[in-house]
Design a protein around this nucleic acid. Structure first.
Lengths: 346, 346
DNA sequence: CTGTTAGCGCATTCAA
DNA sequence: TTGAATGCGCTAACAG
């Protein structure tokens, strides 16, 4: 497939029609505030409009002009967590005159690296890596060199969530959020806990779970007493985890799901098995994606300003980096107690 | 901001390192299955790897090579309706080796046209316009010429949902879906209906509402008896519509919301005002976005295979167009009765 | 203020 | 099979 480039109207054609030089046409059409006499300017503008001229972004990029694309790489656009972040990112990108290229990796490390490479080929002005990275050392190494190359060539990038890689980042307070949940549950009187977890190799999972367990430990409940059920980081994973919990006779009075999406799956399984929430089992999620307030019972969770995360990340990357260590923008995690939590039965 | 192009490794550098000509390096690296002796081929490959060569997509495009970006323009990525479609589209784009550029217009006609123009500047291989167009004649005219220019230059485009513009399209059976809802409600015994509608200038709204009203009419209920409350095409819009319905004393036993997202807002308002669903008022949505089955009461709605819509649209546009009239892919609308509908009170 | 010119990195003729 | 040369459309010196 070709670019069918020849059939587009070129600057040169516009210049000819306006009877000015190529350079002049360039100045008025794509040159920002370059100085051109009003008369010529009008002629060029008229010709461009008449011919429906659209600049060739590739030629502009190649000739050393601006590149206006920024890349966004994430696990799954259709996950509300990511789509909310994406929305924020697009908002500020648009305001900054940038176009967003979106990659959905469906949690494949290879695909993530491929996307970064493709974005590099596009000479994207910046890349946002959204969602936690993978613990796999092979991935770490590959991604690190990919990003180093990109940065060495002048590209800017930032992370949303932890990546164990150097670079600016927007970091939700996962650990504190996990701890806050533990504290709230303890205060309600809970003593036996279960966790529906994603793969612990994901840093996000590790941090949320870590904060939760640490807080319990400091209240005298050892990590060994904690029933951690590890499943996919998805709604189905939450469903499976809850089923397993039920199968085990529900040896807990509270279930912490490391994401709202998992909590939704868990809630479905619990409902199917007739387990009353919160009467028999308190349920807590994490993220506060838009819909969970509409569930019933409305889900208790830890709120993250997802939109803001996207905005901040895009800002980080569209803005000049000050010298010094990588910048980090902390996103506060705020506990929101709704209907799915209560005192333990009995 | 510049492309920092000079700092990228170029094909020429690879060729020099491999001690072959530029042309040969091009052939092995980006030339598909061009014939090159194994020895030279290996030398080039080794040099490229060593130098971490990444082709410059802009240069490739400019030189007449392939353009691998496809554009996706929609109202709002964070709306589950669109993000589900997006996911499907990205899936097949990725399989086809294409990169997706995403534009979120937030329902601004101007922005939609700007995006198409930007995509044209990018020489995007194809453009998908997702979500219904605007009735505004000024917009229609502008978009039509924008698309004509794009197509004349060899670009391909398709619509998801109606646009009143010529071109291939993936069309959900909105009218039939609306009619199916009316039929089901009539069968349950309902006779007094309200609709929470988005702007009727949106063709999607017009069709869903039209199918609904026509079916009622053929059952002897004139359109003038139908209470249509027109608000934003959003959750807030649904909320506002339901509040108004409550303020009016709920002169109906069934409420049809033209989208699930609006139904979610409506449900929230009804809950706040203590209106039992479905006992006092039956509620029906449209789309079957993933979450509505988790609401309580679980929402009755019309299911559309959103993912498939995205996939089909991308396929339409990545595939060679057969001669003849525009292609249309019909997406069946299937009524799903869940808990939010019941016989009218009394 | 305006026009001329030289590349940007690559695919592709055309010769060899 | 390989190499040398041309041009894609545009921007950025540079000269006028």
């Amino acid at each position: 497939m070709d670019t069918h480039a020849g059939r587009y109207v070129t600057l040169e054609q516009v210049a000819n029609a306006a009877e000015v030089s190529l350079a002049t046409a360039s100045r008025v059409l794509n040159g920002g505030d370059r100085v051109v006499r009003a008369e010529l300017r009008d002629r060029v503008l008229a010709a461009a409009r008449k011919l429906r001229y659209v600049p060739n972004a590739h030629a502009q990029a190649l000739a050393g002009g601006a590149t206006t694309t920024v890349g966004l790489v994430m696990h799954d656009v259709s996950d509300p967590y990511f789509s909310s972040i994406t929305r924020g990112a697009i908002e500020v990108a648009t305001r900054g005159g940038a176009l967003v290229m979106l990659g959905s990796t469906f949690r494949s490390p290879e695909r993530e690296i491929e996307y970064v490479s493709a974005l590099r080929a596009q000479r994207a002005r910046a890349i946002l890596l959204v969602g936690s990275g993978f613990a796999d050392p092979e991935y770490q190494r590959a991604m690190r060199t990919e990003l180093e190359n990109y940065r060495d060539a002048g590209g800017r990038y930032a992370f949303v969530s932890h990546h164990d890689l150097p670079g600016d980042a927007v970091l939700p307070e996962n650990r504190a959020g996990g701890a806050a949940i533990a504290r709230a549950l303890l205060e309600l009187g809970h003593r036996r806990f279960a966790v529906a977890s994603g793969p612990r190799t994901l840093t996000t999972v590790a941090h949320r779970l870590g904060g939760f367990a640490a807080e319990l430990a400091s209240a005298g409940i050892p990590e060994s007493d904690l029933l951690v059920i590890e499943r996919d980081f998805t709604e189905d994973g939450g469903y499976a985890a809850a089923r397993e919990l039920v199968a085990a006779g529900i040896p807990a009075t509270a279930l912490f799901c490391v994401t709202d999406v998992m909590a939704i799956g868990a809630l479905m399984a619990l409902r199917e098995h007739g387990v009353p929430v919160p009467e028999r089992l308190s349920l807590v999620g994490f993220d506060d994606i838009p819909i969970v307030r509409h569930l019933s019972p409305a889900l208790s969770t830890v709120a993250l300003d997802l939109n803001r995360m996207g905005r901040e990340a895009m800002r980080l990357v569209l803005t000049d980096a000050p010298p010094g260590p990588p910048r980090r923008v902390r996103i506060p995690a705020e506990l929101v107690l709704r209907e799915s939590t209560a005192a333990p039965p009995g």
